[in-house]
Amino acid sequence: MTRTRPAAILGGVLLVLLAAALSARACPVCDTGTGRAVRAGVFGADFGRNLLVTALPFPIFLGITALLYYGPPSVRRRGGDDTERKT
C-alpha cells in the first residue's frame, strides 16, 4: 500500500493544478472574467443567428429521411416504386 502513496500524492497534486488551470475556470457557467467573456460571446446579439445556422442542416436531414421513408409525392400517388417489389 505504501508504494502507491507517492503516485497518489502526485495524482492529487496534478488534479489540484488542473482544477486551478485557467481553462478549467473559463467554462460558460464559471463566475470568472473568462467565463463571463465566454457567456457574453455565446449569448450575445448573434445568439439566435448562430443557433439557427448551427441547426440548419438537421431539418434538411430529417426531410431527406422522410423522403426516403415515404417516397417522393409522385411515387406515393402511384403507391410504390423500385424499393418495393413483389417477392
Binding site: 436531414f61 429521411t65 421513408y69 424499393t83 418495393e84 413483389k86 417477392t87
Partner: peptide, 20 residues
C-alpha cells in the same frame, strides 16, 4: 401470397443513422 418487400424503412433508418 408472399409479403411485398419494402426496403424503405430500412433505407431511411440506415441513412439517418449514417447521417448521425
Amino acid at each position: 401470397s408472399a409479403p411485398q418487400a419494402n426496403f424503405r424503412p430500412l433505407v431511411a433508418a440506415g441513412t439517418l443513422l449514417g447521417i448521425g
